[in-house]
Amino acid sequence: MTKPTLVVALGGNALLRRGEPLEADVQRINIASAVKAIAALTADWNVVLVHGNGPQVGLLALQNSDYKQVKPYPLDILVAETQGMIGYMLQQELQNALPEISIVTMLTQVEVNSKDPAFLMPTKYIGPVYDKVEADVLSIEKGWEFKNDGDYIRRVVPSPKPLNIIESASIKQLISHGSLVICAGGGGIPVVRKDKKLLGVEAVIDKDLSAAFLAEQINADALLILTDADAVYINWGTDKQMALSNAQPEQLEKMEFDAGSMGPKINAACEFVNATKGKVGIGCLADGSQILKGLKGTLITEKPVAKKNNIKL
């Protein structure tokens, strides 16, 4: 029997946790743990993996800007670099864990609108964490913008919405041949069309929005968003804070979530469920195989599947 298709969106912070040094050895250790959870999913699903790159692309941008002898590489090229770097590490670990499955990493371009208002209002967190003094200095020296990310301060860049995944036909073909495809890493390499040609632009697309868009394009049955939070919470940071086990798009769309973290995940989940009637799980990596069963994390569906912790409006 053919397995259903699952798109898994793996957060960049699952590969490099907050406050950890931006080193290859640290990422390899985290990736080895992530692969155990992803490999377990292949027992029931055809898995397509999309990964984040926030810490990694931010580090490359920092290294890039400090090399004064040459003009800095733009963000689209840095995103391509992270697709190769992170994809390589994920592909190697997955191949070691799943020697019977073909693992393929694909450089993936994602088309965006050059007039997307996101270019005027940066919200996407990238790079390491800073204290206020460091952020103020970098803001003056490099012209970067910063925002609070929980207890931290991080750089933010434009994050336009995905319009088209250029390599979607090739991804479908690989899936049909039984490959586990790692694609749209870091949300995809951001490109625009000008005079019928593709050109890279200065942005980082949110990987959750790209994962949901990809899931629609390849007719996936479910979307799993793995992050460093164990569930979606309402009334976060108050004495009424509560984790949701199940929610519906029409409920979530009436609520506000941080535009740089949980907001895009909720938007991606709602778009996928509304478009496909499929289901979306959001939760932490360790709970991966249980989230879509409604046992852990938050399950977002067209209709309620459980009474516990449903949103009451």
Score class of each variant (00 low, 15 high):
residue 3 K to V: 11
residue 5 T to D: 03
residue 6 L to R: 03
residue 15 L to C: 01
residue 18 R to I: 06
residue 20 E to N: 03
residue 24 A to I: 12
residue 28 R to H: 07
residue 34 A to F: 09
residue 37 A to D: 12
residue 37 A to T: 06
residue 42 T to Y: 02
residue 44 D to K: 10
residue 46 N to S: 09
residue 47 V to N: 00
residue 53 N to T: 14
residue 56 Q to E: 11
residue 59 L to E: 01
residue 59 L to K: 08
residue 62 L to N: 03
residue 79 V to W: 00
residue 81 E to A: 13
residue 88 Y to M: 00
residue 91 Q to E: 04
residue 93 E to F: 04
residue 104 V to Q: 00
residue 104 V to F: 07
residue 121 M to G: 05
residue 124 K to R: 13
residue 132 K to A: 15
residue 132 K to E: 15
residue 132 K to G: 13
residue 136 D to K: 10
residue 145 E to L: 05
residue 146 F to S: 05
residue 147 K to V: 06
residue 153 I to Y: 04
residue 165 I to M: 01
residue 170 S to D: 04
residue 175 I to V: 04
residue 176 S to V: 05
residue 177 H to L: 15
residue 179 S to R: 01
residue 185 G to I: 01
residue 186 G to Q: 00
residue 189 I to H: 04
residue 191 V to F: 13
residue 195 D to I: 00
residue 196 K to M: 14
residue 201 V to Y: 05
residue 204 V to Y: 12
residue 207 K to Y: 11
residue 210 S to C: 10
residue 211 A to S: 07
residue 214 L to V: 09
residue 218 I to M: 07
residue 220 A to R: 13
residue 230 D to W: 09
residue 235 N to T: 14
residue 238 T to L: 15
residue 240 K to P: 13
residue 242 M to P: 02
residue 245 S to H: 14
residue 254 K to F: 11
residue 255 M to R: 14
residue 256 E to T: 13
residue 263 G to P: 04
residue 282 I to C: 00
residue 285 L to P: 02
residue 290 Q to R: 14
residue 298 T to A: 08
residue 302 E to I: 12
residue 305 V to M: 10
residue 313 L to P: 14
